[in-house]
Amino acid sequence: MRNKVYSSFDEAVADIPDGAVIMVPGFGPGMPKNLLAALHRQGAKALTIIANAPGTTADQGAIPLLVADGRVRKLISSFTASAHPSRPSAFSELYEAGKIDAELVPQGTLAERIRAGGAGIPAFYTPVAVGTELAQGKEHRVFNGRTYLLEHALTADYALLRAWKADTFGNLVYVGSARNYNPIMAMAARFCIAEVEEPIVEPGGLDPNQVHTSGIFVRRLVRIPPPPEGIWDEPYNMPT
């Protein structure tokens, strides 16, 4: 069996080339913050990032740092404005100035385009965004009296994943809402690299019934070291 376990994040992302299309999961938890930090150190540029949101601050992962360094050519996301206009993000400032490309996609359409990309389905119809400015220029079609829009699948060169548990074959288990985009991006990308919270076990160490992402999709694995070397989630938006 091929060895998929790498000892460093830098080594695991070393060969990601300029111009790569990269899927990045995460909705708060579930973001591969260690691999993103390594990608930021690595230097690849002209990247296309597909993610739920571009993030505002560096504690939300290194996408804002990649954007601020001018290394992201295009973002495909369900947010192109920062959540609070009083707190602009690196991305929103560049976008308002017309200095970065973006495609704004309703979140369910984004998720389904990724799912379709991993499922061999080139396009699908959805009722979402009919009657809005996002429907302009898209094919409309009526099924059973309701109007739908044609949306196209998304695939990527790479997905950076964040798992809870893994075995050395690459089987992954997620935990809590950290699952979010991980399983669908794992299937939609041609090359997946996962960071893993728990010690990576030998095959047989995970219950096959509980595996969320098959190891057939995963090419590289890195165990997250304890802090401060490894980046671990801090509580998000806790009530005071």
């Binding site: 708060g28 369910g108 998720a111 389904e112 809590g176 809402s177 950290a178 985009y181 669908i184 509580p235």
Partner: peptide, 30 residues
Amino acid sequence: IHTVNAGVQHVTLMPYAAIVHHADAFAIIR
């Protein structure tokens, strides 16, 4: 630490809770 709501606030889960991936969460909506 792994579980938040749509506003990225930590929430508790009910005993009957289930967790699905993002595309399935929106399949339920759509």
